Simulated assay, not measured.
Amino acid sequence: MAQIEIFGEIEGQPVHSLTLTADGGLRLTLLTYGARLMQLWAPDRAGGLADVVLGHDSLTDYQTQGGYLGATCGRFANRIAGGQFWLDGARHQLALNEGPNQLHGGPRGFDGVVWAIADHSDSHVTFTHTSPDGDMGYPGAVDLRCTYRIDGLRLTIEMTATTDAPTVVNLAHHSYFNLAGQGSGDVLGHSLQIAARHYLPVDASLIPTGAVLPVAGTAFDFTQARPIGHALPGPGGFDHCFCLSDPLVRTEGPLLRPCLTLMDLASGRRLRLSANAPGLQVYTGAHFAGTPGKAGATYGRYAGVALETQGFPDAPNQPQFPSARLDPGQTYQHLMLCDFTPA
């Protein structure tokens, strides 16, 4: 079974860490706080292991440093303009946590709660959480499950939700990747290729304008592999949603689409990500500045890149975007398949 330890305590509630291992493959450490990925050890082309996700060594840092490192974000990941939306003729005012807007579910989103452990083995763990009606302003009680499963060099993340009343749901996994190893410097030299021919431009508050623009001829064109830092769109780097364009295909069971390939050329570590979500938020971690990491590391600007498959930001307010609505009797399902076979 998975190795389980006490990592800390929040308001008298224990926070557990769980370590999963796959023979000859990946090793993961997860936290019940935020159903969060804390460590992910992956091999280079010579078999050398490195921890390739950013994180912290203490629960206090996870609570105070921000950035959502490794967390499961929701009830609505990304931004909702004005922190409000209308559903079936009713206006819902949400808790604000980014100026006049809401980000990643509000000041106490799913990243900031302690999830329960429903079941686990050496190679998987399932976390559960119930978000009550009115949580951060959202209607309907929502039951959530988040399962991490490893098989050799593959990691599958499955997030599901059901509701007892109409609501909106958009869950995202928020690890920051550095395939050279966490704490090794910035990721601007990593090679990135994205299966997206369009992206969503944003305003000064990082809210989508409603337009859908082609990536061709812009800094957002990753249709061919190129360094992340080849042409940043501004001093803040990337914090934009790419519209995944490849059709869903069956991959040993679930319908998924190829999303991206990320690679550290020096080590040969590579991440090939497939998912069933329509969007991919790419955030290059511009906020890191002397941030405490793991094993004595300190994270600077662009120390990792978040690759968040998800629905489109502000979808509840932009009817031309894929709907984020969830009704009773339906099941929201977000699947991610991460293949770390080195090049």
Rank of each mutant, 00 (worst) to 15 (best):
N178Y: 01
A71G: 09
T156E: 14
P258C: 09
N101M: 11
A343I: 10
V125F: 01
R269D: 01
P100R: 06
L153W: 06
R270F: 07
G34R: 00
A297D: 00
D203W: 14
A95K: 12
S274F: 07
Q320D: 14
P233H: 05
Q318T: 13
S267M: 02
G140F: 02
W115N: 00
N178M: 04
A81L: 10
R91F: 13
L335D: 08
L273I: 05
A306K: 04
N170F: 11
G140D: 01
V212K: 15
C73I: 10
L40H: 02
T160S: 06
G300C: 03
V282F: 03
D23I: 14
L18P: 01
D44E: 04
A315Q: 03
A343L: 14
G181F: 04
I228T: 05
L232N: 08
V125G: 00
L20H: 02
L103G: 02
Y138S: 08
I228G: 01
F242T: 03
Q3D: 13
S191C: 14
S191Q: 15
Y148N: 03
T147M: 11
G8K: 00
A172F: 02
T309Y: 04
I207P: 03
H198W: 12
T60M: 15
L232G: 09
Q193I: 13
Y68I: 03
G293D: 00
G210A: 09
V169T: 09
R269K: 05
G229L: 06
P258R: 06
F340S: 01
L30K: 01
P214Y: 08
A172P: 03
L155N: 01
T19Y: 05
A315H: 02
M136P: 06
Y299C: 00
L37K: 04
G34C: 07
L213F: 13
G109C: 08
C73L: 12
L18F: 03
S323E: 08
A116R: 12
E308K: 03
A216G: 12
A46F: 15
T218Y: 08
T284N: 01
D143R: 15
S17K: 10
G82H: 10
A165E: 12
P233R: 01
K294I: 11
D164N: 11
M136Y: 06
L30V: 03
E308C: 07
H240L: 08
P328R: 07
G137H: 13
S121R: 02
P258W: 04
H56N: 09
T162L: 08
T128D: 10
Q193V: 14
T32W: 00
D221W: 07
L37R: 05
Q93C: 14
A295N: 14
L200M: 10
G105N: 04
L213I: 10
T209Q: 08
Q3W: 13
M336E: 12
A266S: 15
R149D: 15
G106I: 07
L244S: 06
G237F: 01
Y302V: 07
L188K: 02
D44K: 03
R149C: 12
G236P: 08
